[in-house]
């Protein structure tokens, strides 16, 4: 983990660590029985995830559906309580807080949801939606100033401040996502967790929202955790990238390391599967097509979780789960016994 911080090319090397996540675990119990419920297993949604997020940095988290990305977001928001692990926000133990202290700390970590249609209350006006954080955190803005502050926020995210009395259905998808962003910004957070913020939007609108997120980051010095399944989008916005597979991190490195020389077989397959919008490359890119589907997270394979779909897997992979560490010859951390960079599938010009 510290390896990437030692890299001289890392522009965030000297920045303060805002969020320090260590060994985060969340298992959802599976229960059976109508009257007497017995636990028959657990979905290992997040199973030992560690990373650091620094000021002004964007950490992209990619992975397929069911790999635990969204559970991770919920854990970081404390919308779910982790079973084990530590989350330190600016050195303070975030998981030990409760009551008033927790509420105060929550201001600093905000979230933007995927679906701009269901994450806004249809019966509340835009002014009420964006102003709601201020009614909960009363000492941020005096009551009389709320409306003005909401108008300012609307302006910041590129919406017309005169539309403060409108309702969500009167806005398009992209505009609604801007409302969600304004609500996230309301309490001057340090960290914003973006859970698939552009995947529900049309291509032409997606770029508008991504540009807005980048502008806001520069303006307010925000750190982002950017969760998405679209690898092109993640590459565009992220400084560092974590690849998740079945509740664990498979690879963690800078955008350049991951896309320029992916070392974990899963990352390689993932990158090679992404179609590139350039027909002249057709048939010229090496494509690794994985067999089968991701296994059931309630019953993950022993050892390395990727071994059932991996072409490099050996008996050793079934016995020993590989650690996420930096291996010789590779600059980024990869959780594979046989990690080696593959530039043939690298997504570079």
């Amino acid at each position: 983990m510290t390896a990437t911080a030692e890299q001289t090319t890392d522009p965030f090397a000297g920045e303060e660590v805002v969020l320090d996540v260590d060994g985060l675990v969340k298992h959802f119990p599976l229960k059976q029985g109508i009257v007497v419920k017995r636990q028959i297993g657990a979905v290992q949604a997040v199973d030992g995830v560690s990373f650091q997020l620094r000021r002004g940095e964007t950490l992209g988290i990619v992975g397929e559906s069911g790999c635990g990305k969204s559970t991770l977001a919920k854990l970081l928001m404390r919308l779910e309580e982790p079973d084990a692990g530590e989350v330190r926000f600016r050195g303070e133990d975030f998981l030990a807080l409760d009551g008033e202290e927790l509420r105060r700390m929550r201001r600093k970590i905000q979230i933007i949801f995927q679906d701009p249609y269901t994450s806004l209350n249809p019966r509340m006006s835009v002014g009420d939606i964006i102003g709601e954080p201020f009614t909960i955190h009363k000492d941020v803005v005096p009551k009389k100033g709320i409306r003005n502050r909401v108008k300012e926020l609307l302006d910041v995210v590129g919406l017309n401040p005169d539309h403060i009395n409108r309702y969500p259905h009167q806005f398009s998808g992209g505009q609604r996502q801007r409302i969600g962003i304004a609500r996230g910004l309301a309490l001057n957070p340090d960290v914003i967790i973006c859970d698939e913020p552009v995947s529900a939007l049309d291509v032409s609108v997606q770029a508008q929202v991504m540009n807005l997120l980048e502008d806001l980051q520069d303006e307010f010095g925000l750190s982002y955790i950017f969760i998405a399944h679209d690898l092109s989008v993640v590459r565009h916005i992220s400084d560092r990238i974590a690849v998740m597979y079945l509740g664990k991190l498979a690879e963690l490195g800078t955008e350049h390391e991951i896309y320029g020389g992916p070392a974990h077989p899963y990352t390689q397959a993932l990158l090679s599967a992404v179609p590139v919008p350039d027909p002249t490359l057709r048939g010229k890119r090496e494509q690794i097509v994985l067999k089968g589907d991701p296994p059931n997270p309630a019953n993950p394979p022993s050892g390395c979780r990727f071994r059932t779909r991996c072409w490099k897997a050996t008996d050793y992979c079934a016995e020993v789960a590989p650690e996420l560490t930096v291996r010789p010859g590779i600059s980024q951390a990869a959780a594979c016994h046989y990690a080696e960079t593959n530039e043939d599938v690298a997504a570079m010009d």
């Binding site: 398009s172 505009q175 291509v203 032409s204 609108v205 092109s232 350049h256 896309y259 570079m348």
Partner: peptide
């Protein structure tokens, strides 16, 4: 032209995207 310019590409590092303004 606008669509092609507005999509982030996996084989290119991130510059600012040139978005198409407005809505359909």
């Amino acid at each position: 032209k606008g669509l092609l310019e507005s999509i982030p590409r996996i084989d290119a590092e991130g510059d600012r995207l040139s978005a198409i303004p407005g809505l359909p």
